[in-house]
Amino acid sequence: MPPALLTTSLVNTLQIGSLYALMALGITLTFSVMKLPNFAHAEFVSAGAYAALIISLAGVLNPLLIMAAAFVIGALAALLSHLLVFKPLEQRQVSFYTLILASFAIGLILRYLLFLLADSFNLFDLRIAIPLRILFRQDSLILSNLFAWAVPTSLLLVFLLTLLLNRSPLGREMRALANNPSLARVIGIPVERVKNATWLIVGGLAGVAGALWGMQTAVNPLMGWAAIISVFAAAILGGLSSFSGTILGAYVVAFSENTIMLFLNYSFSLDLAYKPAIPFIIIIAVLLIRPQGFSALLRRGGDLKR
């Protein structure tokens, strides 16, 4: 494999991996704190991307403002899902599968609301309207100002989230709730407030991930769903409980999808169309061989664990 191709794929790994990490951390958080594998997470991403797209089309071109809009919409979608659907269902102590099904239903509604929106205003496959400048170009490797924005931002957000979780009182309470919900209640942790805050953070970060994604590719209502399998693969690599494991998992998935796939394509002429099989193989392999993922490997005081 030529070095230029390798460099490009590694840059892609970094770029995609950071976005996967941002999304997969949300999956891990909701699973740990809420005991819910939330498939509607995909649509929080898409909703954020559309919020970013619309505000950029309206003339707001400051990336920070764009991301803020995406955060707000993603966070709102998540909080409303919790308050209108998940919370009442949890209070009725429904089965685990009912919650999964409900998350599918929320995702379905959101996705097709976005389709309606995109259809009405012709917003399919548009890029968020920040002007593109090429910063660096060599062979197939192109680095734009958007890359310079997106990658450090997602890395920074992942870092901030880790900090919040491991160092702040709110993060401590979130981890406490994930670890032992009944004791959390007894010692007076305001469980509902912590849950609301968790949903806001999870949805907001998904929204920002959507915006960052939309800056680099294009926005469409299926974009979140298209990534959800890879994102779940990353979270499962983290054992659905470990924060650092999830981040590592995100880069492993991105590396396999980009560098390893390209290598197989180049060396064994494996069709690139098989790329979607990679997260599936990762999921199956992890579940069969090591269902705890990286979590036991990286277990420290600060990790989430059911």
Binding site: R172, R175, A176, N179, N180, S182, L183, A184, G301, K305
Partner: peptide, 8 residues
């Protein structure tokens, strides 16, 4: 289950 065993 009277402590948070995953926390410090």
């Amino acid at each position: 289950e009277n402590i948070f065993d995953e926390l410090t």
